[in-house]
Design a binder for these strands. Structure first.
Lengths: 338, 338
DNA sequence: TTGTACGCGTTATCAG
DNA sequence: CTGATAACGCGTACAA
C-alpha cells in the first residue's frame, strides 16, 4: 500500500499465504485451519494491520453506518434519544451518522439522497410528515425505523408515543384543575407528534364543550429562545387563557421565562404543561409539569428494531406504541378564576 | 448495476460514451465539450443517477466525512459545538460523524482506530489529555483540530479558551465579593479544560494567601445528576465553604438543585459560579453566574480550521486562543460571614 | 483446507 | 476532447 499502511495483499505476501486466507481470518469465516488462523492472527496484531472499511463496504455493497435524521441535536430530547441509539448501535458494530435537518424539508430530502449515495446500512427517522419525504422513502430499500412520528402510508418498523393520548391527557389535567380557557403552543407544522397532541387537545375541548380560541394558538420551532419570544405575543392577547399546553419542554421553559420576567406568576396566574420530561424539567426553579415520553426506552427500542432488521432481512415489521405518563410538578395549579 | 440503480457504466453505455466522460461531468472536471457535457448532465438528471460515494472514496483514498470525538452529546455545551461544526461542514460538502467517548479512554482509542479504518477526511477532538491518545494521534496523518483541550506535545491546529484565565477570573469574582473559603468541583481527571481552571483557582488562592482545603474539592463527570449527587457530599462537610467554583453549568445546575432542596439558600448562604453559559443558564429560577466560552464562535472557528486544512494540505497551523467572559447573574453575592 | 481470479463503482493515467 | 485500461482494497464463487 502507498500510505505506509499495510493492505491485505501485503499481509498475505509477507506471510506467504493468499489474500483469501487473510480475509477469512479477519472476518472470522470458517475454512482456515487452526494453526494457520492463529499464525495469521498473531501476525496481524503484531504489525497492526487494520482492514480498510471503505473497500470492505464497496465489496459488500453497504456501509456499516446507520443514518439518524432529526431536527436539531441541541434539543435535549433528541440528544437523549441519539445518545442511547448510538450507544447500542456502536456496541453492535455500527456507527451512527447524525443529520440535523433543522426542521427543513429540503435538507431532509438532501440527507435521504446522501443516505443512498453512501450506501448506509439503515435509516432512523424522526422526520416530517410530508408527502415528498414519504414518497422518497418508498424507493429506499433498506432497514428503516420511524421514531415518534407518523407517516400516513408508512408500514415499516416504528416506535412511538401515543401522542393523541398525550395531548388529551395534558389537557384533561388542566380541565380537572378547573381551567376553561386553555391555549396551545404547537410545534413545526410538519411534526406529526405536534399535530397529534394538538388533536388530543381539540378533542378534550370538544368533549367538554369549551370553545376553541384560535388567537390562543401559537407555533414554535421547539427552541428555548422561541418560547421566550412567544411570551411577548402571549402578553398581547386581550383575554389571556389561564393555562397553556406547550408542545415541548424547551419551548415551555423559554415561554415560562418570558412570562415570569414580564411579571406573570406561574402557576398562580398561568398554568403550564408540556411534553418530554427532559432532565432540566425537574430542576428547582423550573419544576415543570410535563408528559414523559420515556425517551431512554424509546431510543433503546428504536436501536433494537434497527438491529433486528440489520440482522434479519425478513424480520416481521413491528409498530411499538408506548404510553405517555403525566408527571405533575409545580407549573400547574387550580384555576383561580372560577 | 444489480441494485436496480444505475451505475456510471450504465450511464456511459446508454449514452454511448465512455465512463471517463461521465466521470468528468459528474465531478465538474474540464476536458468535455459543452454540448456533450450538457447532454450527459441532462441524461443524468433525467434518470436520477447518483454516484456511489463508497466507490468514489475508495478511488480517492479518503471519505468526505469528518469525525468528531467528544464526551457526551447530551451535554448542551457539546451539542451546541456539534451543531455549529456540523452546519458549516455540511454546507461545504462534508458529513460529520459524532462519536461519544463517554469520557472513556478506551472508547476514544477505539474511535481513533475506526477513524483510520474508515479513512475519514479529518478529525476534530474534544478529548482527554492522556499519553496514549496523544501517542496515537502522532501516527495519524490527517487534518486534525483540537477543541478546548490541551495535549502537551500536540502542535497542530487548535481553538481554545484560556481556561487558566477562566478559572482565575471565576475565583477572583468570588474573592472580590468577600469570600475566603472557596471550594471547587472538578471535571473528569483527563480533561485539560478542568485542570487548567483548577490551576487558575489554586493560583488565586495562593496569590491572596488563602488556604486550600482538599476536603472542599469534588469531581464530576459533567452531568446534571452527578451535580445533584455531589450536593449530598457537600452537606457532610463540617466547615462548609461560602462559595463554590463548578467546572460546568450542567454540574452546577444539578448541584444547586441538590443544595436548594436540602434547604441551602443560594446565593445568600452559598455562592456558585461555573463555566459554559449554556442557554439554560439564563433562565428564570436558574440565573447562573458563569464564565462564557463563546461556544458558537468556538464551533465555527473549529469548523473553519478543519476546512482550511481540508482545502490546503500545507496550510500553516494555527492556535486560536479565545478570552473567557464573566457573566454575572444571581448565584453569587457578597459573603455574609465577613 | 487453501488459492486463483474476478467483481464492486469510480477515478486517474495515458493514448489516440 | 474523448476513450480504453489500470488501479483502489477487499470479498467470494470457483477451482485445485
Amino acid at each position: 500500500m502507498k500510505n505506509g499502511k499495510y493492505g491485505i495483499s501485503d499481509v498475505a505476501e509477507m506471510l506467504g499465504v493468499s489474500k483469501s486466507t487473510v480475509s477469512r481470518v479477519i472476518n472470522g469465516n470458517e475454512g482456515v485451519g487452526p494453526e494457520l488462523r492463529k499464525k495469521v492472527m498473531d501476525f496481524i496484531n503484531e504489525i497492526g494491520y487494520q482492514p480498510n472499511t471503505i473497500a470492505q463496504s464497496l465489496s459488500k455493497g453497504r456501509m456499516n453506518i446507520v443514518a439518524l435524521i432529526l431536527g436539531d441535536i441541541r434539543n435535549p430530547f433528541y440528544a437523549d434519544l441519539t445518545f442511547n441509539i448510538q450507544r447500542i448501535l456502536n456496541d453492535n458494530g455500527y456507527m451512527v451518522m447524525v443529520l440535523n435537518s433543522e426542521y427543513n424539508i429540503d435538507r431532509e430530502l438532501e440527507f435521504l439522497k446522501l443516505t443512498e449515495q453512501f450506501n448506509f446500512a439503515g435509516l432512523i427517522l424522526i422526520t416530517a410528515q410530508e408527502k415528498a419525504i414519504e414518497e422518497r422513502l418508498k424507493n429506499m430499500e433498506m432497514p428503516k425505523v420511524l421514531v415518534n412520528r407518523i407517516l400516513p402510508y408508512y408500514t415499516g418498523d416504528s416506535v412511538l408515543i401515543d401522542n393523541f393520548q398525550a395531548g388529551y391527557q395534558a389537557t384533561m389535567h388542566l380541565i380537572e384543575l378547573g381551567h376553561r380557557h386553555i391555549g396551545f403552543i404547537k410545534g413545526p407544522g410538519v411534526s406529526s407528534a405536534s399535530s397529534q397532541r394538538f388533536a388530543g387537545y381539540r378533542q378534550v375541548l370538544e368533549n367538554y364543550g369549551f370553545s376553541f380560541d384560535e388567537k390562543c394558538v401559537f407555533e414554535s420551532d421547539l427552541k428555548l429562545e422561541t418560547g421566550r419570544a412567544l411570551a411577548q405575543q402571549f402578553l398581547e392577547i386581550k383575554e389571556r387563557p389561564s393555562a397553556m399546553v406547550v408542545v415541548n419542554d424547551m419551548t415551555a421553559i423559554g415561554f415560562m421565562d418570558g412570562c415570569r420576567k414580564a411579571g406573570i406568576r406561574i402557576p398562580e396566574e398561568l398554568s403550564i404543561i408540556s411534553f418530554d420530561d427532559i432532565a432540566m424539567a425537574s430542576m428547582y426553579g423550573i419544576e415543570l409539569t410535563t408528559i414523559s415520553q420515556h425517551v431512554d426506552e424509546m431510543g433503546e427500542k428504536a436501536a433494537h428494531l434497527m438491529l433486528k432488521q440489520l440482522n434479519d432481512k425478513d424480520a416481521k415489521t413491528e409498530r411499538i406504541i408506548m404510553e405517555p405518563t403525566l408527571i405533575v410538578r409545580k407549573t400547574t395549579c387550580e384555576c383561580s378564576e372560577i
